[in-house]
């Protein structure tokens, strides 16, 4: 499981192991200030990152910020 969320410290506290920092609390996988096309690119990048994290070997809680 990979956790896509904005408040990373809470995710770390509750014990998620693979963490992807997201955009903002009310729209973790979107950005209403962008055009719909740009927004979808942002979302695609985050999901891509999440899928990469799922395929990454880890030994402890890991925040995939890059």
């Amino acid at each position: 499981m990979v956790h896509v969320c904005t408040i990373v410290p809470i995710s770390l506290t509750v014990g998620a192991n693979r963490i992807i920092p997201a955009v903002a609390i009310p729209h973790p996988l979107g950005d209403p200030t962008k055009t719909p096309v740009e927004e979808k690119i942002i979302r695609r990048k985050l999901v891509d990152k999440a899928l990469k994290a799922l395929q990454t070997e880890i030994s402890e809680q890991t925040v995939f910020s890059e």
């Binding site: 609390i25 009310p26 729209h27 973790p28 996988l29 979107g30 209403p32 927004e39 979808k40 979302r43 695609r44 985050l46 999901v47 899928l51």
Partner: peptide
């Protein structure tokens, strides 16, 4: 949280549009 953004476009919270796209592309 302010539900405006999620109600206008629920994919912002549950990314179904992008997941469907990737499924069609054969990513998974």
């Amino acid at each position: 949280y302010d539900p405006t953004y999620a109600n206008n476009d629920p994919n912002r919270v549950l990314p179904v549009d992008v997941m469907r796209e990737m499924e069609k592309e054969g990513v998974f």
